[in-house]
Amino acid sequence: MTLPRIILQGSLALLVAGMGVYAVAQRPGASVEQRLQKVEDELAIRRVLVDYSATQDARDYAGYANLFAREGEWVNGKNVHKGREAIHKMLVDLYGPPPPGYVNNESYHISSNPQVDVQGDRATARSRHLLIMRGPNGEPQPALAGRYEDELIREDGQWKILRRVDYPIMPTPEEWMKQIQARRAKQQ
């Protein structure tokens, strides 16, 4: 075998190997339509992550509950709320019924670091949340940080949360309860 031929064969082997990698990255057999669908799905799911914060912060309980699937579940430690009605009730119990025209100028959640993986009509997503609360002089103060782990399902053509697990990180649930109790004591 002459040297050029070896180089040529080596190049071809590299080329073929390289094409294989490229093809895998591009999902072999996926049509343009399927690839577009996957991009649409990712954007739709990212939007669900943001809408979750927006509806929670606006105390839009119906909008919030509607982000979940019919059998959707919200989980935080031992607290589990299943179904839109139960999830709606969880918010009423947590925040009380909001007055008409309520505008929340006291707090909001930054939704960040989305990791979305779509598999057909199912998906998983991870994201971070950082609760910002109004401080003594009106300044925004980071108050609570955590992670969400979601399972999502395409239901009636819309992406819905099948299961959201909220993992509080800073402070821990115990530390957070202490803060809430101290805040309530101050208000009384």
Partner: peptide
């Protein structure tokens, strides 16, 4: 602007 509001800022 929400936190602080204009007066607080």
């Amino acid at each position: 602007d929400i936190m602080p509001n204009r007066e607080e800022w």
